[in-house]
Amino acid sequence: MDARTQQELVAILPRLRRFALGLTRNEAAADDLVQSACEKAISRIDQWEPGTRLDSWMFRIIQTTNIDQLRSQKRRDSHLKVVENQGESSFDGERAAEASMTLDAVRRAIYTLPDDQRAVVMLVSVEGLSYKEASEALEIPMGTLTSRLVRARTALARILQEQDGDMNIANNDKVSPLERGATT
């Protein structure tokens, strides 16, 4: 790996950590995952085509590494435990700023999504990748990507709307837009 690529890789580390956090829901696990992914990337740098997006390539490595780790370690139970303790919500509820509560709620809602949907949300909504880039990074067909995205978004909309009527996220009207007919 040449010095320039190394620097580019260091520069995207914050985004890689963010994606890894979305996948693992745990900061320490996220850093371990990024660490493993970087080691893989360095050893397989000849597989990366210069001129293509390094970030997409890294997201793919992170995703496959995570799946491998989940399969081999079967740590799902410990992941679930972590989710309950996640976030900055340990302040006295009424004192936390409303904005932070909303963000907390959103993060937790995303954490409740199934792994495959969460990965899609992290890449498309959080990282801002196009559908094509995201489907390549996750190595799934476009149709699979869009159906996961639809399921994830509708689930998020429902979760966040259910959680609280007076948070910013909720619509003012009581009727969920989701309850309307599928075709209007």
Binding site: L13, R18, L21, A30, Q35, C38, T102, D104, V106, M122
Partner: peptide
């Protein structure tokens, strides 16, 4: 909101060990 909710990670100091790996 999803973007903003994960912004904090983006602005944390990256652990040195991670940078050193690269």
């Amino acid at each position: 909101l999803s973007r903003i909710a994960f912004n904090a990670t983006l602005h944390e100091v990256v652990p040195q060990a991670l940078k050193d790996t690269i």
